[in-house]
Amino acid sequence: MSGTTDKSTTETTTAELAPGVHIPLIGLGTWPLTGDDASAAVARAIDNGYRHIDTAENYANEAAVGEGIRRSGTERSELFLTTKFNTQWHSRDGVRRAFGEAAKRLGTDYLDLFLVHWPNPAQGRFVEACEGLQQLVDDGSIRAWGVSNFKPAHLRLVQAAGLNVPVNQVQIDPEHGQPEQLRFHRDHGILTAAYSPLGRNGDFLGHPAVSGPARELGKTPAQIVLRWHVQHGRVATPKSANPQRQRENLDVFGFSLTQAQIDAIDALETGAPPRLDSDTYFH
């Protein structure tokens, strides 16, 4: 998958979602930040060099994220903005209404990436939602579309409707590697975006497979894990409101893990499923 490069390192720092649409591999996750905490974190992150911000309708912080963007003084065209919509909007017309509401809250007239947040297969309308997203791309309201938390079975139904899914945002960390999910993505040209890329409790950050390379390379364990995501070609959106950690999380280019180091982190996979089962959980 092609992308753009960091001129200082000649390393790819983005992935191509669609012709001319490049998503930065490291973005700022914003859940569960709300209110002024969210606005301040977003403004600070942009000042620290972030150009990819990830939010969602259900995070209840889109307006605060939009305020943070305005506070930063950075031109909207320099940023990559992702948000997600809930299952109440799962129809072609509903997705268009969801876009209008999200754009209003964020204070923007377009989105770089708009995602179906959960498939909710019992409702049975996520394919229609994807069709609605493609229509938004076609009329220029959004630059790219994708899904989140879709299992291969859900993705196959979308593909059967004649749609190619550009990206799927799923829970991936060293202990929740979801190898079958990732294999499906690779086989079908679907970009993987990892949410909670550093895990929820971070126990694996102390494992020798992570702490060893951190010592050798003079990096933090979190940087090692984010670098592991990047070298696997994934987008990762760690959340942090701390300015030092924000800078560290973004600073994962210009060094590399060896294949042996990557394999050791891969081996931390426990076989545990994602925290939430997208066949039954949704909002």
Results as ranks from 00 to 15, higher is better:
residue 189 G to R: 14
residue 135 Q to L: 06
residue 255 F to A: 06
residue 199 G to T: 11
residue 155 L to S: 06
residue 185 H to N: 11
residue 207 H to P: 00
residue 237 T to S: 08
residue 227 R to D: 09
residue 216 E to P: 01
residue 201 N to L: 07
residue 176 H to W: 07
residue 162 G to C: 02
residue 141 S to V: 11
residue 227 R to T: 11
residue 183 R to A: 13
residue 254 G to M: 14
residue 222 A to Q: 05
residue 264 A to H: 04
residue 157 L to S: 15
residue 129 A to H: 10
residue 241 A to P: 04
residue 221 P to D: 08
residue 221 P to V: 02
residue 151 K to L: 15
residue 193 A to S: 15
residue 234 R to Q: 13
residue 143 R to H: 11
residue 238 P to C: 13
residue 185 H to P: 00
residue 218 G to H: 11
residue 147 V to A: 12
residue 236 A to Y: 04
residue 195 Y to C: 07
residue 235 V to Q: 14
residue 173 D to G: 00
residue 145 W to E: 03
residue 145 W to C: 05
residue 210 V to D: 04
residue 252 V to K: 07
residue 240 S to F: 15
residue 154 H to E: 07
residue 155 L to E: 13
residue 136 L to K: 04
residue 201 N to R: 09
residue 226 L to V: 08
residue 152 P to D: 03
residue 149 N to C: 08
residue 224 I to A: 02
residue 195 Y to D: 04
residue 170 V to Q: 01
residue 244 Q to Y: 10
residue 218 G to S: 11
residue 135 Q to D: 15
residue 126 F to D: 02
residue 160 A to Y: 01
residue 209 A to R: 15
residue 199 G to D: 00
residue 241 A to D: 15
residue 152 P to V: 12
residue 122 A to Q: 10
residue 234 R to M: 14
residue 242 N to R: 13
residue 236 A to E: 06
residue 157 L to P: 00
residue 203 D to R: 11
residue 195 Y to W: 15
residue 194 A to S: 14
residue 177 G to A: 14
residue 133 L to H: 02
residue 230 V to Y: 07
residue 176 H to V: 15
residue 253 F to S: 07
residue 179 P to E: 10
residue 264 A to W: 11
residue 179 P to S: 07
residue 201 N to Q: 11
residue 140 G to S: 10
residue 127 V to K: 06
residue 134 Q to T: 13
residue 147 V to P: 15
residue 216 E to Y: 00
residue 242 N to I: 09
